[in-house]
């Protein structure tokens, strides 16, 4: 099936080439796209020098806007499946290939790579800040209560989607941190989402944009969004 892998990236000049090589090695059939969310470094130049098309947003718009750019590009290009992984090198392409093949088999509309899906995997190598851990716990509780499904990694940015999911997200998608609410919305719109246990790696370059203050803002904002999302009407007939 015609597959696009897109890599949302913000100031990832150090790691982007490695991520591209990794995707080409493990998903040789897939076309590649880098979505540069207004980087101020050489991210775009590095990707273009490797022959990868870059959707360069003229100014920083937020992670969600970058994801949506990828979905729009995939839809317009006629791709049946799109996979996404972060440009910081934390997501091995071999794992994304597993997610893509699950979607190819029609197991779900969206397959999410989770660090904590299998019991016994403690994921403790991901040293998170206190606020981040709290946030992840709160999101998990809220999403699970709202969707009646048990997600273990609601903030994962490693996913594979089919056209139905891309269409939904291209219409409306939070411009900021979007992963959490997109799960809730997709489930409430009748899409099928599955998690798959994956390995993730420590960052190979760049810097996380989530400072403690931003994490708090993120948690607060996402709680509002999830609450509002829960009050919106469900739409199961689109199934």
């Amino acid at each position: 099936m015609k597959t696009l892998v897109f890599i949302p990236a913000l100031n990832e000049e150090a790691s982007i080439a490695g991520v591209i090589a990794d995707v080409r090695a493990h998903l040789p059939q897939a076309d590649l796209l880098v979505v540069d969310d207004g980087s101020t470094d050489q991210t775009t130049r590095n990707a273009r020098s490797l022959g990868v098309p870059v959707a360069l947003l003229p100014f920083n718009q937020g992670v969600g806007a970058a994801h949506q750019t990828g979905f729009l590009y995939a839809l317009r290009g006629g791709y049946e499946i799109c996979g996404q992984l972060d440009g910081d090198g934390q997501h091995p392409a071999a794992e994304l290939a597993r997610l893509v093949s699950e979607v190819e088999k029609g197991r779900a509309d969206i397959v999410v790579g989770s660090r904590f899906h299998d019991p016994g995997v403690d994921g403790s190598e991901f040293r998170s800040t206190f606020s981040r851990r709290i946030g992840q716990r709160v999101f998990r509780r809220m999403v699970n209560a709202s969707t009646r499904q048990s997600f273990t990694d609601t903030t994962s940015g490693m996913r594979a989607l089919n056209r139905r999911a891309m269409t939904l997200f291209s219409e409306r998608y939070s411009p900021e941190f979007a992963e959490v609410e997109s799960l809730q919305r997709a489930i409430r719109q009748g899409l099928k989402i599955e998690e798959l246990q994956v390995q993730m790696l420590p960052r190979t370059g760049g810097e996380s944009f989530l400072t403690p203050m931003r994490s708090l803002y993120y948690i607060f904002k996402t709680m509002i969004v999830l609450l509002v999302g829960h009050l919106r009407p469900k739409n199961p007939e689109t199934h």
Binding site: D31, P53, V54, A55, P58, Q68, R76, P175
Partner: peptide, 27 residues
């Protein structure tokens, strides 16, 4: 307006990526 600006930025980015992809295919 923020939503409209975001969509404009996305459309612009997609156009540029398409140009990239076509140039790459030609090469």
């Amino acid at each position: 307006q923020a939503e409209q600006i975001t969509r404009l930025a996305q459309e612009d980015a997609i156009q540029r990526a398409r140009v990239d992809a076509e140039a790459d295919a030609l090469r």
